[in-house]
Amino acid sequence: MLEAHQLSFRFASGSPLLTNISLRLAPGEWLGLSGDSGAGKSTLGKLLAGQLAPHQGSVTIDGSLLPARGVRPVQWLPQSPELAVNPRWRVGKILKEAWTPPDTLIEGFGIEPQWLKRFPNALSGGELQRVCVLRALAPGVRYVVADEISTMLDPITQLSLWQALKAHAERHQLGVIVISHDTALLNRLCNQRWHLAGGSLRVSSTELEAP
């Protein structure tokens, strides 16, 4: 169980961004997080992944704090894969940065063997995004924060990415937090839906969000 206890975060200027946010995510569950730009969705995602430290509150997994070192059990997946890889490394080296994924999984994510010899700039955004997602699924990883990972993909590529992640998450009881503007996507994927506004969470239902 991934739990956030009364998280608060403020900017360096002192103005608060998030106040007293609590949420729980069980293994295998999918949590959808929506909100306007600047509402703090990505910040909340980074707090949950331990990439940022909250000013108040804590994030725990099964009651214990996130470990300070080693493979992070909550992985944060950013929107732009181009910025998340070393441009001087070949894709094969990037993919095996944290662990060596089995060939079946490489195939399952639709990653073609010939990509591994190329440099990241020779791959399209969707292709590189699949590499980055698979890279983050090392054995010690229990939860994933997917921050707008499919925004710049066409519908078919988007679908194949989510199908691959869904299959892996089901097999390994991975909890997934999906951050997106796309309410239709969140309704498809998630069994918990939250909307972030004014620094706090509220339950979001389809009827409320319908345009």
């Binding site: 066409d154 519908p155 078919i156 988007q158 679908l159 796309d182 239709a184 996507l185 309704n187 498809r188 994927l189």
Partner: peptide, 12 residues
């Protein structure tokens, strides 16, 4: 492409 949209079948 149309069917793959999340508001539609979300499958292909």
């Amino acid at each position: 492409l149309w069917q793959a949209l999340p508001d539609n079948a979300f499958s292909t």
